[in-house]
């Protein structure tokens, strides 16, 4: 799964030559074989490396504050979201929904790598949400729909239908 994400990220970034990946250990942590140096290990590390390779550093944040916020949500993705039990998922969704209340993207007004990897990581959860849950997590649904329609992001994942008339009710934005 992580390897498909990295392939999609490469395509989003417009990287011409595809990289070679393998996985390591029981958790299948992605490994990037690097011709010029030691292998890189870990989804966040490799994804950040690809962003630099594509010369799109703004996707990691263009100020120290924003870089830290992006880094924080990338870490959240691999430490909390990826290992969560059903009970923990509820807390993660509730908190993320609250966080996104006044934001367009995870790092505020700018689209970053955090949005891409959180979208890839949360897709299997959002797919399973019932209509009422999509309404309860209104801000996540709005953000999710935004990211899945962001040019070039979705790739390997099927689109999720959100009820637009419910997702954008009058009085909310």
């Amino acid at each position: 799964m992580a390897l498909r994400e990295l392939n999609s990220l490469e395509r989003f970034l417009g990287l011409k030559k595809p990289n070679k990946y393998s996985t390591q250990g029981g958790k299948k942590v992605p490994v990037l074989q690097n011709n010029n140096g030691p292998a890189l290990i870990g989804l966040v590390t490799i994804a950040s490396h690809l962003v630099h390779e594509a010369q799109r550093p703004e996707l990691l944040g263009d100020s120290a504050e924003q870089r830290a916020v992006v880094q924080q949500w990338l870490e959240h993705r691999v430490t909390r979201l990826d290992n969560s039990s059903k009970e923990e998922v509820k807390v993660i969704l509730k908190d993320l929904n609250q966080y996104l209340e006044d934001k367009v993207y995870l790092a505020g007004n700018d689209f970053t790598l955090a949005d891409i990897l959180m979208y890839y990581g949360i897709h299997h959860i959002v797919v399973e949400l019932a209509v009422q849950e999509k309404e309860r997590y209104l801000n996540i649904t709005r953000w999710f729909d935004h990211i899945q329609h962001y040019p070039g992001v979705r790739h390997h994942l099927p689109p999720v239908v959100v009820l637009r008339n419910r997702v954008y009710p009058s009085g909310h934005h």
């Binding site: 890189l40 590390t45 950040s48 490396h49 870490e75």
Partner: peptide, 11 residues
């Protein structure tokens, strides 16, 4: 941050 520091922090 560098690739190397990122990798240790992620690990």
């Amino acid at each position: 941050a560098t690739d190397a520091t990122n990798q240790w922090l992620e690990w």
